[in-house]
Write a protein that binds this DNA or RNA. Structure first.
Lengths: 344, 344
DNA sequence: CTGAAAGCGCTTACAG
DNA sequence: CTGAAAGCGCTTACAG
C-alpha cells in the first residue's frame, strides 16, 4: 500500500521537466506576466503530468504571511453556532483564506489549548465566539501579542477587542415590549445562565423594557438553566410554581422556547392561547413548530460575513472598527402569540 | 495599533537570549534528554520572556510530515454531522493532530475546492463524509496520489477506501422488523433521497425486512424528499394520499421523523396511537418530543473515534482495515410506538 | 523574459 | 552535551 505513495513533486521537479529554472515556475504559479505565455504553458503541462500540488506552507514561511485563519466556536452542535461557523467559513474562503474551525464545547481550558495550537499553526488571525466564562484578559493578551482577533456573538466586555454580534439588549427589549403590548405584566425570562454575557445582555434588555412602562422587576421571574432542550421541563415547572405564576415568557433561545412549549403542552396548557412564548435566536425553527413561535431574529449570516470582513481588514493592516457592530434585532411575529393568555 | 505588533521570536532569538546555539533550543523544544537540565531551564526562561510561539509549519516543512488532518463534512448545520465532527475533532486532538474542519454543504464543487485547499495546506490525511452524489472516482484519485483518506458515514461504493459508518442496512432492517412485529404490513419509508448512499442502504434494509416476512415491496411507499424538517408536511401528505395509506413509517432520520409527527398532529392524527413512526439517527432528539420517538441509534461518538483511529493508523504507516467498519444499530424503543395504530 | 543565490524557521546528521 | 552546516519548498531581489 505504502509503495503507491509518491513523494510530492516540487517546483524543482517541475522546472526540470519543463526545462526552466525554479524561479520561472514560481512566476507561473503566481500568474506573473513576467513569464512568457508559451513557457507558462510548458510549465503548467509539467505540473499536470507530475500531479503537482502547491505547498502553501512553504510559501507562507518564505513570505512571512499566512492564508489560514482560526474560527473558534463555543458549541458547534448548537445549530445557531453551526450557522455562524458556516457563514464565517464561506466569507473567509471567498476572501482567499482557509478557515480552521475548532470547537471548544464551552470549555475554557480546551479553548486555551486549541488557540495555542492555532497560533503554532501560524494563523493570520482569529475570530472567536468565546466559551462561557472566558476571561477578557485571556483573549486580550492574545491580541496584545500582535495577533488580529475579532470577537463574534459573545462579547468580552473590557477586552477592547473588535466585536460583531447581535444586539441582545435591543432584541430582548423589543420582544419584551411585544409581550407587554399584548397585555402581560408578569413576564418570565426562561433559561440561559448569567455566566454568559449574552444572557446578561438579554436580561438587561428585558429589564429595560419593563422599566420603560413602569413594571417592577421581579428577580424570581428570571429562571436560569442550561440553554438546552432538556431544560424546558425544569424552567416551566419552576415558573408555574411561583406564587403568582406568569402567563408569558421570553426564552433565552429558540431551542429552550420550543422545549418550554412542549412542557406547557404536556401540562395541558396551549402555547399562544394559554401562555405566551417568545424565543431568541432565529435558526428558522420557530416557523416549523406547532403553533409557530414568535422569535427575535438575528441574521446570523450577515453577522458572520461582517465578522469575517472585520478580521480580514485587521489582518491586511486596516484599523479595527471604532465601535462594536451590532446586527439588527428583528421581531418575527408568528401565530397569535398569547394575546388571549393575557386576558385569562 | 499596528505598532504593537512584534515580529515573532524564533529559535535564533531564544538561542541568543539563552546563550546557546539554535540546535540546543530545538532539542529543548522536543524535550530531548540530550540537553542538560539546567540549560533547558535557561532556554525555557528565554522562551517565556520572549513570548516564543513554536512554528509548527516550519518544523513540518523540514521534517516532511504534517500534524494537520482535514475533516470534510457534508453538512455541519445538521446536528448529526456536527456531532460526528466534534467526535472526530476530539479524537484527532487527543492523538496530537490538529483537525481542520471544513463544511461542504452537500456541494460537490465546493467539496473539490476545499479538498484542494487542504492538500495545498499539506494535510497528513483526510476523513471525509462525502457530499451528496460524490463520485467514487473523485475521492479515489485523491487517495491514489498517496494521501491517506478515510470515509465516514457516507460510503462511496467501489472506491475501495476504508469506511467507518453506520450499519444502515441492519438498522433499517431492525426498525422495519419492529414495525412489522407490531402488526403493520403497509409501512412507508419517508424522506431522504436515493442520490445518497445512506438512503439507498436504508431502503435496502427496509426491503430486506419486508422480504423476510413475505410482504411485497410497494415502491409507492418510498417517498423521497430532502432530509429537512421542512419536508415533513410534504411526505406525510403524500403518504396519506396513497390509495391504501400506510399507518406506519420508517423515517430517513430523526429530524424528518419529528417533522412527520408534527404533520400528523396537525391532521389530528396521534403519533403512536394512530400512526407508528420510527426514526433514524439518534441525536437524542427522540426522547425530547411528545410522544417520545422510537429511533435506531447509531453511536456517532464511537464511530467518530474509530474513523479517526483508522486515519491515524493509515498516516503513521499502518494498513487499512480489511473490511468496512460498521457501528452497531440499536433500536431504542420509546413510547407505545404504534401497536394501536396497526389495529385500527 | 530567465537563472543563481539567499533566506523564511525549523530539524537533522555530524563534528567536536 | 553543544555548535556549524545543510536542507525542507517556496519567494524575492538581483543579475544577465
Amino acid at each position: 500500500m505504502r509503495d503507491t505513495r509518491r513523494a510530492r513533486a516540487t517546483i524543482v521537479d517541475i522546472a526540470a521537466r519543463a526545462g526552466v529554472s525554479k524561479s520561472t515556475v514560481s512566476l507561473v504559479l503566481r500568474n506573473s506576466p513576467l513569464a512568457r505565455q508559451q513557457t507558462a504553458e510548458r510549465v503548467r503541462d509539467a505540473m499536470r503530468e507530475l500531479g503537482y500540488v502547491y505547498n502553501r506552507g512553504a510559501a507562507n514561511l518564505r513570505r512571512a504571511r499566512s492564508n489560514v485563519v482560526g474560527v473558534v466556536v463555543s458549541d458547534i452542535v448548537n445549530p445557531f453556532f453551526a450557522e455562524l461557523a458556516v457563514g464565517l467559513e464561506n466569507a473567509f474562503l471567498a476572501a482567499g483564506y482557509l478557515p480552521i474551525l475548532v470547537n471548544t464545547g464551552e470549555d475554557r481550558e480546551r479553548q486555551a489549548r486549541v488557540i495555542q495550537a492555532l497560533r503554532e499553526q501560524a494563523v493570520a488571525g482569529l475570530v472567536v465566539s468565546a466559551a462561557d466564562r472566558t476571561e477578557a484578559a485571556a483573549i486580550k493578551s492574545l491580541a496584545a501579542s500582535g495577533l488580529p482577533v475579532t470577537l463574534a456573538m459573545r462579547d468580552l466586555p473590557g477586552s477592547g477587542l473588535p466585536y460583531v454580534g447581535q444586539d441582545n439588549l435591543e432584541g430582548a427589549r423589543v420582544a419584551t415590549r411585544h409581550l407587554l403590548s399584548l397585555g402581560h405584566a408578569r413576564i418570565a425570562f426562561l433559561a440561559g445562565s448569567s455566566s454568559i454575557a449574552t444572557h446578561r445582555e438579554r436580561v438587561d434588555g428585558y429589564r429595560r423594557a419593563l422599566a420603560e412602562v413602569g413594571v417592577a422587576f421581579d428577580p424570581s421571574l428570571v429562571i436560569e438553566a442550561p440553554p438546552m432542550r432538556e431544560s424546558g421541563e425544569q424552567v416551566v415547572a419552576r415558573a408555574l410554581a411561583l406564587p403568582a405564576p406568569p402567563r408569558a415568557a421570553l426564552c433565552f433561545n429558540d431551542l429552550t422556547a420550543i422545549a418550554a412549549m412542549s412542557a406547557l403542552q404536556r401540562r395541558g396548557l396551549r402555547p399562544g392561547a394559554d401562555f405566551a412564548i417568545v424565543g431568541f435566536d432565529d435558526i428558522e425553527e420557530g416557523a416549523h413548530v406547532d403553533p409557530p413561535l414568535t422569535t427575535v431574529s438575528m441574521q446570523t449570516d450577515d453577522l458572520a460575513r461582517t465578522a469575517a470582513r472585520v478580521l480580514v481588514e485587521l489582518i491586511e493592516g486596516g484599523a479595527p472598527p471604532a465601535a462594536p457592530i451590532y446586527g439588527v434585532a428583528r421581531l418575527v411575529v408568528r401565530g397569535s402569540c398569547g394575546a388571549a393568555a393575557a386576558r385569562r
